[in-house]
């Protein structure tokens, strides 16, 4: 089984909403699909909504960090939005502070963060 998570586009921003507990292969597929879509759609930003995720382990955490890094290399910015408080506590205690990953509390704040960063000159 290799499910693929739909990637939506709003203007020059890609939006992904993770709605269920992910198999490892699905996580890896998402990573590749996002890299492809950033280039194919000339996206300036990526928003990954994880508000439905009950846990983020080091595998998913690493994917988020990798997507952030890949998008940076492809001249786009990634914002992870909607992390649950219990997930944040657990991630930090696990030892994964997601340095280098931009976050926002919800989709709206994430979009605002992206539009700020894309409209204020050089990134």
């Amino acid at each position: 089984m290799s499910d693929r998570i739909p990637i939506l586009r709003i203007g020059d921003i890609l939006v992904v909403s993770v709605q269920f507990d992910l198999e490892d292969q699905t996580v890896l597929n998402l990573q590749e699909d996002l890299a492809d879509q950033i280039v194919a759609k000339s996206a300036q930003g990526v928003i990954i909504d994880i508000s439905a995720l009950e846990i983020v382990d080091s595998f998913v955490g690493r994917m988020l960090a990798t997507v952030a890094a890949i998008s940076r290399v492809l001249d786009a910015r990634t914002v992870v939005v909607g992390m649950r408080p219990a997930v944040a506590i657990t991630l930090v205690e696990l030892g994964l502070s997601l340095g280098g990953v931009s976050t926002a509390l919800d989709l709206e704040k994430g979009l605002a963060k992206l539009s700020r960063s894309t409209s204020t000159g050089p990134r």
Binding site: E54, I55, V56, D57, F59, R84, P85, A86, V87, I89, T90, L91, E93, L94
Partner: peptide, 11 residues
């Protein structure tokens, strides 16, 4: 929070 920690550790 403890549920989340336990599930994450198990994962």
């Amino acid at each position: 929070v403890d549920q989340t920690k336990m599930i994450t550790a198990a994962s």
